[in-house]
Nucleic acid binder design. Structure first.
Length: 549
RNA sequence: GCGCCACUAGCUCAACGGCAGAGCAGCGGACUCUUAAUCCGUUGGUUGAAGGUUCAAAUCCUUCGUGGCGCACCA
């Protein structure tokens, strides 16, 4: 084999060669197959909705000239005529009609077209005998010759790996995928509209943090050369947004990526999109009502209803939503009263109930584990769980010792400073939102950071790190505030009935498709102590392999 | 990280120890109202990779790769 400048993906199979040949033939015929600046006057969708109902006689009486540009997605050739469909960004397709009689010598070019080519056409509208609105083409240009065959028209592209890796193909051929991402866009727009209409301003805070904070998670590390500084991709924007509250913004929000160095699953992507918003002079009770309004607004604006199916389950977002306390939920699920508060008993109960609890688990982790195992699966319809234990919420405000806190409806555990003003919203057993009254006591905050540091020393990799500048900010005074985070990907999953987070992220994280030959070579040369002999034999044909420089 | 499953033509899939196939796409031909166009003819494969078992491997075994699902991990 000779050294080659081919890409690592096959770019020389027969089908591609045939298309390259047509490309040359187009050029020989005087076409410019990668032409530029074709300004179409119309979109397919616009033409279909405006003229789709017109009678043929009407289109003949007052002809409609039009032009569209898009991808050729079907082609049916006859001897001296051809029908095809062009699909454009209006997400509709319109039929076009090529006729030798009309196009003359230009008609030859249609013989060099393939499904997948991007073309611009102009002509006038007419109705076929079957009543389909069609452009009778008087002229066209090949704007981009497609060299790779698209998947089959009928079965389409199903291979999920190819769909994720080559999302561009997925988007071309699978309309429901385009629909999902169109909905995603409407959902984020609705969120922005809702918040902006209520006086919130959108901000952007750092993605690269010297101290990863605002959540309990393992961060990605990176490095800034000029500053000679280790940095972390952010796990949450929380601490920066609260600095902005100190700075005087009363209502701020950010919709952006968070990064967490954890496993990948149908519910987890290493980078995911989070909405966080903060409201000064309000508490978490305000946020519960606000969240109902926000999510209902978003549902109405995006899918136009509050009642829909998710994975075969009927979901109803009609407010008000159920509210239950953390310990109330535990009690309801049959966790005995007396073990709560007693670490040893709690661990024993968890183990007795076959809940996996590691040796190093802290009291709060065990509680959390029991909750996730026993309680969460029950929350199919929207449910607020309120008043979490303080150990689980190092950034939330303690519950008032008196019952004076507003909105006591669901709060049966007042008089409990070991609790915090916090809720989580669950829909389809999944956490959709997490919110609390923000801790603004700098001394308490510092102590909680210190407690987290102890957890860290005990081996809890995800314990919060001390952020001294954040404490300093609080020392200047942060107004009382309520803050909330909503996982956008999971919200989009819910509203688009997507079972995997990869179906709502355009380019989900995957391992590299192909190892570079250099890497492969290195690995083969690695001395493997315990490798059986049969493995080592693989190295023999090395001399026949291409030398790669 | 662990377990199970998958990987066959450009795409969607058969063949499950005995000659690697179909449909669509493609290519050649016919065809001026088709729309999964039709009709005739036809090309296309290192069966994800490497080893092994066997007279014979897509098929059985091992290792590896990638993906899916589940588990673990996961404010």
């Amino acid at each position: 084999m000779e050294e080659t400048n081919e890409l690592h993906y096959d770019s020389s199979n027969e089908l591609i060669e045939q298309r390259k040949r047509k490309l040359r033939e187009l050029r020989d015929l005087g076409a410019a197959p990668y032409d530029d600046n074709f300004v179409a006057g119309n979109y397919a969708g616009e033409l279909v909705s405006a003229y789709g109902d017109f009678e043929e006689s009407r289109l003949t009486a007052s002809p409609v000239e039009c032009s569209v540009a898009g991808r050729l997605v079907a082609f049916r050739g006859f001897g001296k005529a051809a029908f095809a469909h062009v699909q454009d960004s209006s997400d509709k397709r319109i039929q076009i009609y090529f006729s030798k009689e009309i196009l003359g010598a230009h008609y030859l070019l249609t013989k060099k077209l393939d499904v997948g080519d991007i073309i611009g056409v102009w002509g006038k509208l007419f109705k076929t005998r079957t009543g389909e609105l069609t452009i009778e083409v008087t002229g066209f240009k090949v704007l981009s010759k497609s060299l790779r065959p698209l998947p089959e028209k009928w079965h389409g592209l199903k291979d999920v790996e190819v769909r994720y890796r080559q999302r561009y193909v997925d988007l071309i051929v699978n309309p429901e995928v385009r629909k999902t991402f169109a909905l995603r866009s409407r959902i984020t727009k609705a969120i922005r509209d809702f918040l902006e209409n209520r006086g919130y301003i959108e901000v952007e805070t750092p993605m690269m943090h010297p101290i990863p904070g605002g959540a309990a998670a393992k961060p990605f590390k990176t490095f800034h050369n000029a500053l000679n500084l280790e940095l972390f991709l952010r796990i949450a924007p929380e601490l920066y947004l609260k600095r902005l509250l100190v700075g005087g913004y009363d209502r701020v929000f950010e919709i952006n990526r968070n990064f967490r160095n954890e496993g990948i699953s149908t519910k987890h992507n290493p980078e995911f999109t989070m909405l966080e918003f903060y409201t000064a002079y309000r508490d978490y009770n305000f946020l519960m009502d606000f969240t109902e309004e926000l999510i209902c607004y978003v549902a109405n604006q995006s899918i136009g209803t509050l009642k829909f199916e998710y994975g075969g389950q009927a979901i109803d977002l009609t407010p008000p939503w159920k509210r239950i306390t953390f310990f109330g939920a535990l009690k309801e699920a049959g966790v005995p009263d007396d073990i709560v508060g007693d670490g040893a008993k709690l661990v024993k109960w968890a183990q007795d109930n076959k809940i996996d609890v590691t040796q190093s688990a802290t009291y709060s982790k065990v509680l959390d584990e029991i909750f996730k195992e026993k309680i969460e699966p029950g929350f199919i319809q929207p449910t607020f769980v309120v008043d979490y234990p303080v150990e689980l919420s190092p950034l939330a405000k303690r519950k008032k010792a008196t019952g004076a806190g507003a909105g006591a409806g669901a709060n049966s555990d007042v008089n409990a400073p070991e609790l915090v003003d916090r809720f989580e919203l669950f829909i389809t057993s999944r956490e959709i939102a997490n919110a609390f009254s923000e801790l603004n006591d700098p001394i308490d905050q510092k102590e909680r950071f210190l407690a987290q540091l102890q957890d860290k020393e005990r081996g809890d990799e995800e314990a919060h790190a001390m952020d001294e500048d954040f404490v300093r900010a609080l020392e200047y005074g942060m107004p009382p505030a309520a803050g909330e985070g909503i996982g956008i990907d999971r919200l989009v999953m819910l509203l688009t009935n997507s079972q995997s987070i990869r179906d709502v992220i355009l380019f989900p994280q995957l391992k590299p498709e192909q190892q570079k030959p250099e890497q492969l070579k290195q690995e083969q040369q690695k001395p493997e102590l315990q490798k059986p002999q049969s493995q080592q034999k693989q190295q023999k044909p090395e001399s026949q392999k291409p030398e790669l420089h």
